[in-house]
């Protein structure tokens, strides 16, 4: 592998790591809020349950990021997922009056 290719490849891996760590963390935490805000009657219990399973969500994001062929697609997937979830959470918060 040429030096340029090697450097580029290393950068791609680094970006995937950042996406998996930061993106996965954000998506996992947002999934907790989404579930919690969906069940108002048992909100605390739903939040707690979602937290128990949030590590699985994070794990799935990591697997996805490292599976997708293109870093751009991986970045788009994570960013769009987290943006969509953030909007849903904001919407639910406004709707519930949190």
């Amino acid at each position: 592998m040429k030096n340029d290719d090697l450097t580029r490849s290393r950068w791609m891996v680094f970006i995937r790591c950042v996406l998996a760590a930061a993106g996965g963390f954000l998506v996992a935490n947002l999934s907790v809020a989404m579930v919690g805000l969906l069940f108002t009657d048992t909100q605390a219990l739903a939040t707690y349950s979602a937290m128990l399973f949030s590590f699985t969500v994070w794990l799935l994001v990591v697997l996805l990021v490292f599976h997708l062929r293109s870093v751009r697609v991986a970045a788009l997937s994570v960013c769009s997922a987290s943006t969509a979830m953030l909007l849903i959470v904001q919407g639910l918060q406004i709707w519930r009056g949190v």
Partner: peptide, 27 residues
């Protein structure tokens, strides 16, 4: 998972306490 509860209940200490109280009642 430090942001799960704040995203749901709010970021203040009081919000956190509310969550804990509700959780103990519900569990």
């Amino acid at each position: 998972m430090p942001l799960g509860v704040p995203f749901t209940y709010g970021f203040s200490e009081q919000d956190k306490q509310t969550y804990y109280q509700e959780l103990m009642q519900q569990t």
